[in-house]
């Protein structure tokens, strides 16, 4: 068995402040070398918090983190100072939703990529700039020599996201975190970026954790999908398993709400209600109040995790229930 690139064990993240939020509750997740996993969930499900925890980006004073995170043999939660700086960017890097906000408006995109290369690889500026140029080529930016000297405002949204990806991959990280990188883009541009990421993943062989709320996007980029709800993973499996044989009632509801094969004008089988506020730590199934299959025991204790094979799991008492008739 190959060693896991990412190994998250029993992670809990709680934010304190005006109100307490239990953002991540007992999350366990593994990613193998070179694997692409989509974290699928709605707003507030904890998918972005998981990424930020992996990169140690959460504000230390207000966030309480416990559990274990090991990335490529490094214990992430104990890192500090120089080691943390090296870890960010060299081992792991991240692509954000809004490339226009993530890039610095007063430096050219070439300088920004080169800066990161100089920092991490200790090379001279001219060498770093040639790496930057090479990266712009690899993300298929037309006329890269000219674009190297452009400022972010001179580039379109799709181009900026390509630059962001070039910057993230310039130091050849083992793990790429992508936080809804195509959500702000137009449909015809989104598909270009998704296919680019898929190709680059093959080329560089890094592991990818891709956060999205869009099942279609997850299908396009990932081999595996973990579905999140209320800070927990409720179902995990290969993309094929999740799409063709969803087991958790929430996953099924999400698939139905995609409207991909909804009959026009027919009533939608909508999930009623809204996600729970996370001000207390869940001690029962968080989805039970909205679940069509809920039973008294669902509200009494956390659901058992059913695992039919090695990396397939469903946190539900009805993992084998037949798909509901509409």
């Amino acid at each position: 068995m190959t060693e896991n690139l990412v190994d998250i064990r029993n992670l809990n993240v709680r934010f304190s402040g005006a109100r307490t939020v239990h953002a991540i509750n007992d999350l366990t997740l593994t990613l193998k070398q070179g694997e692409t996993m989509a974290l699928l969930g709605e707003s507030g499900s904890g998918k972005s918090v998981t990424l930020k925890t992996l990169l140690r980006l959460l504000p230390p004073k207000r966030s309480h983190i416990d559990g274990n995170i090991v990335v490529n043999g490094v214990d992430v939660l104990t890192l500090s100072g120089k080691k943390l700086q090296a870890y960010r960017g060299e081992e792991v890097s991240m692509v954000f939703q809004e490339p226009g906000l993530a890039l610095d408006p007063v430096y050219t995109v070439g300088d920004q990529i080169a800066e990161s290369v100089m920092r991490h690889k200790g090379v001279r500026k001219d060498e770093a700039l040639s790496t930057a140029l090479d990266m712009l080529r690899r993300v298929r930016i037309p006329s890269p020599e000219r674009r190297l000297h452009n400022y972010p405002h001179e580039l379109s949204g799709g181009m900026l996201q390509r630059v962001m990806i070039a910057l993230a991959l310039a130091c050849r990280p083992r793990l790429l975190l992508a936080d809804e990188p195509t959500t702000a883009l137009d449909a015809t541009v989104q598909i270009q970026i998704l296919l680019l990421l898929r190709d680059l993943q093959k080329e560089f062989g890094m592991g990818v954790i891709f956060v999205t709320h869009d099942i279609g996007v997850a299908v396009e980029v990932s081999e595996r999908i973990a579905v999140m709800y209320a800070g927990q993973i409720v179902e995990e499996g290969t993309t094929r398993e999740i799409i063709k044989d969803p087991r958790h009632p929430y996953t099924r509801g999400l698939l139905a709400a995609n409207l991909h094969d909804a009959a026009r004008g027919a009533r939608l089988n909508a999930i009623p209600g809204a996600p729970p506020p996370l001000d207390t730590r869940p001690d029962a199934c968080s989805f039970a109040p909205r679940c069509p299959l809920a039973e008294p025991q669902c509200l009494a204790a956390l659901p058992p995790v059913h695992s039919p094979n090695d990396r397939r799991r469903v946190a539900c008492i009805h993992p084998n229930a037949p798909i509901l008739a509409e």
């Binding site: 709605e42 509801g253 409207l259 939608l268 999930i271 009623p272």
Partner: peptide
């Protein structure tokens, strides 16, 4: 969110 969107479409 997708689940809420379906409710509003109904």
């Amino acid at each position: 969110d997708k689940s809420v969107e379906a409710q509003v479409l109904n």
